[in-house]
Amino acid sequence: MTSLDGADQVLLRLDRAEVGFGSRMLWQGLDLGLRAGELVAVLGANGSGKSSLLKVVLGQLPLRSGRVEFLGTPVRRGDRRIGYVPQQRLSEDGLPLRGRDLVALGVDGHRWGVPLPSRRRSHRVDQLLASVGAKGYAKARLSSLSGGEQQRLRIAQALAAEPRLLLCDEPLLSLDLPNQRLVSDLVDAARHRLGLGVLFVTHDINPILDKVDRVLYIANNRFRIGTPDEVLTTPVLSELYDAEVEVIRHRGRILVVGVPDLELPHHPPADVMALTREQVLR
């Protein structure tokens, strides 16, 4: 984890922020200051507003009230100082896009017209591929690559514009445990190397537990912010959900039992599935 002090620059600030759709409130009164070099995990059940938070930061979703600023000015769409890593999704077989083509879109895909080949562009793409260990399959079609390999490329693409802030929208979803660790390590390495602030939306804290500085947990229109030890506790989550929730620490992992409507990864490891307390402690 990163050691933070008061001199670190605040990249992202939300003050009394409120988001909802129609009569439905997702969260309100959110105060958050994300510093350079800090990784904040965003947790909560399905539909709690985790991805909506990222849309707010990307300028795609307006606040109902409050304010959100990036580097001291209101957020706006298309700010290339903000990188974005989406969920893993396999590419269609018919898509003739190579690995290096996907990364190149991060270099100049924001410009109009067909990009012209250039040594500078090619060198930049090579640098990005090397930074995530993807040079070996740079010329392979995306459809032939595994989920973990594709996520390596998406991280490289997100870093192409040398962002200050990295938004990760459940990038571990559908990945097996080794690739979850791989992707988590790549994001963490980039965070330290470039001094990035990171908002990391995830359903499972365990793959990034040793990397997290703070947790933002959203549930029932409310939230709590603090270190994992402060937030991921039985009293705190039970209060957020207005229901009995038990947090169990077992063999270096955090297991949450009893969360209503918890959406789990498609292929979670066996010890992360919804277990009873007796099963966990056996």
Rank of each mutant, 00 (worst) to 15 (best):
D213S: 06
R214T: 08
R214H: 09
R214M: 01
R214C: 00
R214S: 08
R214K: 14
V215W: 08
V215G: 03
V215I: 06
L216A: 13
L216V: 04
L216G: 09
Y217R: 09
I218W: 07
I218L: 13
I218A: 04
A219P: 02
A219E: 01
A219G: 05
N220M: 05
N220Y: 05
N220S: 11
N220G: 00
N221K: 12
N221I: 01
N221L: 00
N221Q: 11
R222G: 00
F223D: 00
F223M: 05
F223R: 11
F223Y: 14
F223N: 02
R224S: 12
R224M: 14
I225T: 04
I225E: 10
I225W: 10
G226E: 15
G226H: 02
G226C: 06
G226D: 14
T227D: 00
P228V: 04
P228S: 12
P228E: 13
D229R: 08
E230Y: 06
E230D: 11
E230R: 08
E230Q: 08
V231G: 01
V231P: 03
L232P: 06
L232M: 04
T233K: 08
T233V: 06
T234W: 07
V236L: 06
V236P: 01
V236E: 03
L237Y: 08
L237W: 00
L237N: 06
L237M: 06
S238Y: 14
S238P: 10
S238E: 05
E239V: 07
L240W: 02
L240E: 10
Y241I: 14
D242R: 03
D242T: 08
D242S: 06
D242M: 11
A243G: 06
A243T: 08
A243M: 07
A243E: 11
E244N: 10
V245T: 12
V245L: 05
V245M: 06
V245P: 09
E246W: 07
E246H: 10
V247Q: 04
V247E: 10
V247P: 01
V247L: 07
I248D: 02
I248L: 13
I248F: 00
I248Y: 02
I248Q: 03
I248A: 12
R249M: 13
R249V: 01
H250E: 13
H250N: 14
H250P: 02
R251V: 09
R251E: 14
R251Q: 13
G252H: 13
G252P: 09
G252R: 11
G252K: 12
R253S: 15
R253G: 09
R253I: 01
L255F: 07
V256Q: 02
V256G: 01
V256L: 09
V257N: 00
V257S: 14
V257F: 11
G258H: 05
G258I: 05
G258M: 01
V259C: 08
P260E: 06
D261M: 04
L262I: 13
L262F: 05
L262T: 02
E263L: 09
E263G: 10
E263C: 04
E263K: 04
L264A: 10
P265A: 14
H266N: 04
H266L: 12
H266Q: 05
H266K: 02
H267G: 12
P268G: 14
P268I: 14
P268N: 09
P268D: 06
P269C: 15
P269G: 15
A270M: 13
A270E: 15
D271Q: 12
D271F: 10
D271K: 03
D271I: 05
V272M: 08
V272D: 10
M273S: 15
